[in-house]
């Protein structure tokens, strides 16, 4: 059960995005299935590699910039 290519959920973010609209897909798609396997790979994607701030002032730094996606 290793190295199965997971389907990728890319969540686009930019300054001023709403945090709960970003956490929703993370909450929903990162949970494992009944056999304990991960079903999806979920990442944040943004134009720039430096941090992005949500409307609520939460900063996200672990992001994949456009060219590397």
């Amino acid at each position: 059960m290793k190295e199965k290519k997971l389907r990728h959920i890319g969540v686009l973010i930019f300054d001023g995005f709403l945090a709960n609209e970003m956490t929703a897909p993370f909450d929903v798609f990162t949970k494992k299935d009944s056999s304990g396997s991960q079903l999806f790979e979920v990442s944040l994607i943004a134009k720039q590699i430096d941090s992005v701030s949500s409307e609520e002032g939460i900063r996200y730094c672990r992001i994949i910039p456009f060219p590397m996606f």
Partner: peptide, 17 residues
């Protein structure tokens, strides 16, 4: 691909990249 909203929508709409 999941596209959320932004309170700076006008800036995002104009962002050609």
């Amino acid at each position: 691909m999941i596209v959320p909203s932004s309170v700076q929508l006008e800036a995002q709409v104009k962002d050609q990249e």
